[in-house]
Simulated scan of single mutants.
Amino acid sequence: MKFFPSFLLAGLLMISSGAFAQTAKTKTKGPATETVQLKTSAVCDMCKARLEKAMAYEKGVQQATLDVPTQMLTVTFRPDKTSAAALTSAVQKTGYDANDQLADEKAYERLPECCKKTNAVH
């Protein structure tokens, strides 16, 4: 009778040590992020909401913030997922100028009147 419990204990030790011997898969840290600043033609808080939302849908974008007074859009992104050129294009397709690149004509026409460059209020 004394042999059976020690045999059982030895078996449990072998099973548990086998479970701990498995290699754990660790996530490797992804590539570092990059930041790009784009001078936009955005003029109001509606523009801010529109641009930040559009950037949130872009693959690889970690964060996007528009400073309305300076019209600077700061985008933090993963370079393995997107590029500064792709983000510039995304801003244009949203209807805003990006640095020296003019906005997409059709997208610009869809903007509310308060967001257009020709609005006298701004």
Results as ranks from 00 to 15, higher is better:
K117M: 14
K29E: 11
K106Y: 10
A19T: 03
S83Y: 01
L73A: 12
Q63D: 13
A90F: 00
G18K: 04
R50Y: 10
L8R: 00
K2E: 09
T82Q: 05
P31F: 11
Y57H: 13
E34H: 04
Y108L: 15
K25P: 05
F7M: 05
T94D: 00
L8Y: 00
S41W: 02
V121K: 15
T35G: 06
K117H: 11
L87S: 04
K116S: 02
L87R: 02
P69C: 07
E105W: 09
E109T: 10
Y108R: 15
V121D: 10
P79T: 10
K39D: 07
Q71M: 13
L13Y: 03
M72N: 11
L111T: 00
A19V: 14
Q62H: 08
D45R: 08
T26A: 11
P31L: 10
A120T: 13
Y96E: 03
K27H: 12
A85P: 02
K81Q: 10
K2G: 13
Y108P: 01
T40Y: 05
L12Y: 01
Q63G: 06
T35N: 09
T74P: 01
S83C: 04
T28N: 08
T82F: 07
P31W: 06
P112A: 14
F77Y: 15
C44W: 08
G95P: 00
A84M: 04
P69H: 12
F4Y: 13
K27L: 14
M55C: 07
R78N: 11
C44V: 06
Q37T: 13
V36M: 03
R110P: 04
F20I: 07
V43H: 12
L8V: 07
G11V: 00
T28W: 02
A32V: 07
